[in-house]
């Protein structure tokens, strides 16, 4: 066996390791048995029906969607503005500020969660939805910033300078030239922030008020009992949502990029 085919075999095994557990979640979610485990007794959609009728889960989805959407919008606006400053201007202290901006990725999320919680509690802010939102914004911001920055570096300055020299003011230039060219990164940033927020559990467990659950914390709470087929069904819904959304987003971004070219 040649070296290359060993490498290929190893790669296939690793992909199997990555996808097998996920595939089994999807498979078991269609199991008609009472218990969320093997053997498969028959194929049924029963557990998806149970999900739909479970108020706690529907509520959790509502919270997660709202939180994800608000986080995505806030982080992306802040990220675009900061990226413009860091890519398009020269100013003293720039490298320190660049590092500071990605600090939320470098600080362990547990520490960030504790620090934010205790500080805002000290300021008498209760555990609440706004606290969750602030927390999610702070740790998604660096990701959005990095995505937008990477794209902005590739947009030639000449276009903006042409607009400026033709009499457009900087704000007009941004909205008519820079933003359309930046759109794929803006969409990617929105999706990125949404998915990170939608998936977060580490910080959310610290910040969420009692009685409010997001989808991941709801799953976590359900795991306390035992693994039920309902959790597998919920897992399948999550997988479809979080995989399909980015794929649609990527396809959209590609189409937009093609049209601009």
């Amino acid at each position: 066996m040649s070296g290359w085919s060993i490498i290929r075999l190893f790669t296939i095994v690793v992909y199997g390791f990555m996808f097998l557990p996920v595939a089994i979640v999807v498979l078991l979610s269609f199991n008609s048995s009472q218990f969320g485990s093997f053997p498969m007794e028959g194929v049924s959609l029963r557990w998806f029906g149970e999900l739909w009728n479970n108020d706690a889960i529907i509520r959790a989805f509502r919270v997660s969607f709202m939180l994800g959407a608000l986080t995505a919008i806030t982080s992306t606006v802040l990220g675009i503005l900061a990226a413009l400053a860091l890519v398009r201007y020269r100013f003293p202290g720039k490298s320190v500020i660049s590092t500071l901006m990605i600090a939320p990725i470098l600080v362990p999320e547990v520490v960030l969660a504790v620090a934010l919680l205790l500080f805002l509690r000290w300021l008498d802010m209760p555990k609440s939805f706004p606290l969750l939102l602030l927390g999610h914004v702070i740790f998604t911001l660096p990701f959005v910033l990095l995505v937008v920055q990477a794209r902005l570096v590739g947009i030639r300055r000449d276009y903006e300078e042409a607009a400026l020299s033709l009499g457009a003011n900087p704000v007009q230039t941004f909205f008519t030239i820079t933003l359309p060219l930046l759109m794929p990164a803006v969409l990617a940033g929105l999706l990125f922030a949404f998915t990170i927020s939608f998936d977060d559990i580490t910080g959310t467990m610290f910040w969420k008020p009692g009685g409010v659950e997001t989808v991941p914390t709801q799953i976590f709470a359900m795991l306390r009992n035992s693994i039920s087929p309902e959790i597998n069904a919920l897992g399948t819904v999550m997988i479809v949502l979080t995989v399909a959304l980015p794929l649609i987003g990527m396809a959209l971004a590609r189409r937009m990029a093609a049209r601009l070219r």
């Binding site: 900061a82 620090a115 205790l118 702070i138």
Partner: peptide, 26 residues
């Protein structure tokens, strides 16, 4: 010369108030 700081200020304030100050606080 002010413009980059104006653009940066929302993100910079967010990181400072929600990360740097809280870490010093704990």
């Amino acid at each position: 010369a002010m413009r980059p700081w104006l653009l940066l200020s929302p993100a910079l304030a967010t990181v400072t108030l929600l990360l740097v100050v809280p870490v010093m606080f704990i």
